[in-house]
Design a protein around this nucleic acid. Sequence first.
RNA 1: GCCGGCAUAGCUCAGCUGGUAGAGCACCUGAUUUGUAAUCAGGGGGUCACGGGUUCGAGUCCUGUUGCCGGCACCA
Length: 644
Amino acid sequence: MINVTLPDGSKREFADGASPLDVAESISKSLAKKALAARVNGELRDLKRPLDADCAVAIVTDKDPDGLELIRHDAAHVLAQAVQALYPDAQVTIGPVIDDGFYYDFARKTPFSTDDFDKIEAKMKEIVDADYPIVREVWEKDAAIAEFKRIGEDYKAQIIDDIIPPGEAITLYRQGDWFDLCRGPHLPSTGKLPKAFKLMKMAGAYWRGDSKNEMLQRMYGTAWANEKDLKEHLTRLEEAEKRDHRKLGRQLDLFHMQEEGRGMVFWHEKGLTLWRVIEAYVRRRLEAANYVEVRTPQVLDRKFWEQSGHWEKYRENMFVCETEEDETLSLKPMNCPGHVQIFKFGQKSYRDLPLRMAEFGACHRYEPSGALHGLMRVRAFTQDDAHIFCREDQIEEETANFITLARSIHADFGMETDHIALATRPEKRAGSDEFWDKAETQMLSAARAAGVEPVIAEGDGAFYAPKLDFVIKDAIGRTWTCGTIQLDYVLPERLGAEYIAEDGQKHRPVMLHRAILGSLERFIGVLIENYAGAFPMWLSPVQVVVAAISDDAAGQYAEDVAAELRKAGLRVEVDRRNETINYKVREHSLAKVPVIAVVGAREAQERKLALRRLGSNGQQIITLDEALVSLAEEALPPDVKRAR
RNA sequence: GCCGGCAUAGCUCAGCUGGUAGAGCACCUGAUUUGUAAUCAGGGGGUCACGGGUUCGAGUCCUGUUGCCGGCACCA
């Protein structure tokens, strides 16, 4: 007999060999029908896999996050089965679950096209209708390799060979005449897979994520518990597309890019206004946090980059030019070496530390063409860079303070950090294990001191030290690093930075590289998508449009109002065009101007404004004097507002 | 950089199996002077990304290049 404890704490007895399905059936027929898998002592297992001892059992249905993951995982298997049924020359490789869906990588000479999707989806539905039982089988490693080789699945054979320790058994899952290597668990049969799936896109992907390997064809799909969830997801994607910063950048006349300057941005007046507001805000915050601001040369001699080590490692990513006098120069790809030169100028004492040196530094990197992406990844960008020169015992406090500052700034922009990643020692690295142990511990405890629990990004650190990255999501869920802090012992050494300590001797400072926005470009890109272009008042390039109902009756008054508002510090435009007020309201609403001040004969008469807020269709009639005070207050940057 | 897709007016897009370009918006001109999301009429505007080829004839077919889009790899 097996004693089973259910999630509500009740216990039931079952005969030996009973499975979670029997447990579900004993509870109710409908639960058994809805059951997809089970958690046995916390471990996710197949519904029909017999229980081996007394245990706790929780039935998993499609209401569970676990259930959804099973659905997606099975959808990947059904996809692979369908593809191989239709295209026997395609080999299977891997097919994991991802956010909102799954993908499967196939190896096949002929490219797949999205035109094949209808056919494949239809086949998938056939497989669901056929309701093949999904059966778990345990195989010897060598037998499994032989079997996959026999049927021509070289990639699978290689996976088993590489990842399974010798002698260990593996599991295969069989559905109909098709089977795949899989840890499981799976649904009890293909009929349990809801038909709420859809193939989304084709893409190339390197075998095992290594660009030295051949490229496979990746098919992305999405899968949900029901048709309604699928539809909602597709609607969400459509909505997200409207927030795309590249689209809004054009619509709102913020910036543009063109062929002759790949990865370079032409900032239009409105975009630059946004830029300057952001820059001014960050500058105030840095000043308040005791940073000093500097500016270093844009182009420097090759020798300088050789000394810093960049020439050797990143030559192919640098913009290099030659002069008539046979000098080789490079546009700076980063600001750090320049800052070290300022640090080295004259003598520094321990009393000068920590020295926080900031620069809105324009950097150029020749990024691989395929990496370019709107404002998010460009070749010319401006970092809100700073380097903190400090003693080793100041690292933790400086890091913690930085995290607090960065979080406060992100919060002022209404940005939600997806997570903070602690990137740890990479395979190729400088420094001893003791160094890395210490450095990683320092970063971690600094993060915790600032009230943050970082997500560990194994092996993602720079070669010289670990780093903490602030990761933010864009409209469609892609993640971007906005903000970082990196520990560096190497550059001060290479470039010979030193200070005089209390003992009168020369010592090497530690350098903390840090950025809060990352780059102005990327940050603005993320900002546009976060707000869908409808910026809060303080960021909005145009804060108020004064729209005259008729030029004869209120044109001059509109100009007067605008002049007053500008005097109060607001960014204002006047619209006296010979158009209906409906037309003007529509146009400025589409331009996402936060406040439209409508003025007609009545307002001109009474020195009033009819204010209309973006997103509401009511109006608020107030006197010009009241408006001057309240709008000016409303337009204050958050830090200035707090200081009042 | 790699795999796949796409490229027509300022923008969004139509243009079937090849027969020498079209709409809406925007722009310009005129009329209208307007009360909270599109006033009416008229007009101008395109080497169909660029180069080569097939053809009597190419926006349409083939090919090369460039750029963009979606991923992968990269991101000091």
